[in-house]
């Protein structure tokens, strides 16, 4: 059962304020991910304070890096159920968990951060994983 929207609104805002496009419908997801070329960071948001409370700041830190994905999008697990299911359909063999973070290049998952890789870790450590992946897979450099 979804949480009250007023409760999750700040968590949505935390993502959109850092530049992530929020995808709330299947059509949104298909438009953003379905035929996207280049690199796309997909953040599966969650109300879970244990893990998402560190994941969102980690993404924000990572988006301050020099190499960046072409676009960053977010879906909210447990809230926008259809959109999340559609987003997960683009993630191949990777199993659902939330929060989680996928980096896609030309529609293929090239890096995945599972919930178990977020739990108990600092935002800095999670961000370091992400920026390493950005360096490897993303050619979109700030100021380039």
């Amino acid at each position: 059962m979804p949480y009250q929207e007023s409760l999750v609104a700040p968590m949505r805002a935390e993502m959109t304020e850092m530049g992530a496009a929020e995808l709330r419908t299947v059509a949104d997801v298909d438009a953003a991910i379905g035929s996207a070329t280049g690199t796309t960071l997909v953040f599966v948001n969650s109300v879970c304070g244990c893990a998402a409370g560190n994941a969102r700041p980690a993404v924000k830190m990572a988006l301050g890096h020099s190499a960046l994905p072409d676009r960053t999008v977010t879906v909210f697990a447990g809230q926008d159920v259809d959109a999340v299911a559609r987003a997960r359909s683009y993630l191949g063999e990777y199993q659902p968990s939330s929060p989680s973070i996928a980096l896609l290049r030309d529609g293929e998952v090239v890096h995945f951060v599972h919930r178990h890789q977020i739990e108990g870790r600092s935002p800095q450590a999670i961000a370091a994983d992400l920026t390493k992946a950005f360096d490897t897979y993303c050619s979109n450099s700030v100021g380039a």
Binding site: P10, M11, G49, G53, N54, R56
Partner: peptide, 8 residues
């Protein structure tokens, strides 16, 4: 909101 835990 970051770090908020719903289940103290």
């Amino acid at each position: 909101m970051s770090g908020h835990v719903f289940h103290p």
